[in-house]
């Protein structure tokens, strides 16, 4: 469905071709930024050419949303047409009212106070939510199906991520329902990632659940390698983690979501109000299984129902 949405009016170009739009890209992560690539791809598909009719100004404050607040205040003064905040960076933007802001969140934007409702955001914020909260329990359940003997689950989470607490709560409830003991291993920003992983290694867990987040996304290879090294079956939110060596992932397609976010950027630049653009929720969730990792971990997936349900199997 998203694919069709993207393919449909690809030829559409910004009407006023002389106008150069300025878009602020705010992120608490460093480059390479996989989400930015998806967004850029989406802009190109809508007929925007960077440097010609659109300028992307990238603002990265690695692990420090506070630093982005200054960018936010600068944003309110400067002539910026649109701000796109990825993940935790949205937190720094909540006070911005003058400029339309697009977000891509794992959590619930209503709960965060960014929008009044998903159907009618009503303010200058709109974007996409990945429904991580609902999927949090589903991930635990899938992990349990692959590992019927799962007793102790290490939950690795970036505490700076908005809505992270809700996600942890949902995960904990699901784990308890399935008779699993969750071990919460939070870390704050990239600086604490290493020490966080070390803690996870010491938790003596049967499996590792990593909350989807820009930070863990960027360091997905490191985390996946860590999991294999510690013989931890891992569960992630997005398919990219599995490509990097994670065992399982269940969630919406990130790249497609950011690609799609570019269509909203296009509509806002053309004059539509973010207040009436509904927050988009993914309809399709990908279950990706990395069979190579499974072999490395000695897990026989054929016993479970996971393989026929997988959208993609990495062999």
């Amino acid at each position: 469905m998203l694919g069709a949405a993207l393919a449909c009016p690809a030829a559409a170009l910004a009407e006023d071709s002389r106008r150069v739009y300025r878009i602020y890209w705010l992120s608490t992560q460093a480059q390479p930024d996989p989400f930015l690539d998806g967004f850029r791809e989406g802009l190109r598909a809508r007929g925007y050419v960077e440097g010609k009719n659109v300028v992307l100004e990238l603002h990265y404050a690695i692990g420090n949303p506070q630093a982005l607040r200054e960018v936010a205040s600068e944003l309110r003064r400067g002539k910026v047409d649109l701000a796109v905040s990825s993940g935790p960076a949205t937190r720094a933007m909540t006070a911005v009212e003058e400029v339309p802001v697009l977000f891509a969140l794992s959590g619930d934007p209503v709960e965060l106070g960014l929008v009044k409702s998903l159907g009618q955001p009503g303010g200058n914020f709109t974007g996409s939510t990945f429904l991580s909260l609902e999927l949090a329990g589903k991930r635990v359940e899938l992990l349990k199906e692959v590992l019927p003997n799962l007793r102790k689950l290490a939950v690795f989470s970036n505490a700076n991520h908005p809505g992270e607490q809700s996600e942890w709560r949902a995960t904990r409830e699901a784990a308890q329902k399935l008779g699993i003991e969750p071990v919460y291993i939070p870390f704050s920003g990239a600086s604490e990632l290493e020490s966080g992983l070390a803690k996870a290694g010491e938790a003596h867990a049967d499996a590792l659940l990593v909350f989807p987040d820009v930070l863990t996304m960027v360091h997905r290879a490191k985390i996946a390698d860590f999991a294999i090294a510690h013989r931890l079956p891992s569960m992630f939110g997005w398919s990219e983690y599995c490509d990097a060596g994670g065992l399982l992932s269940y969630g919406a397609n990130q790249r497609a979501t950011y690609f799609w976010l570019a269509t909203y950027a296009d509509r806002i630049l053309r004059g539509e109000k973010p207040a009436v653009l509904p927050v988009f929720q993914p309809t399709r969730f990908e279950l990706v299984v990395n069979l190579r990792t499974a072999e490395q971990l000695g897990i026989d997936l054929d016993k479970s129902s996971i393989l026929f349900r997988a959208n993609r199997v990495i062999e």
Partner: peptide
């Protein structure tokens, strides 16, 4: 509706 955002407005 071809413009899905009209549908997602929940009856607006």
């Amino acid at each position: 509706h071809p413009d899905i955002s009209l549908v997602l407005r929940s009856g607006a």
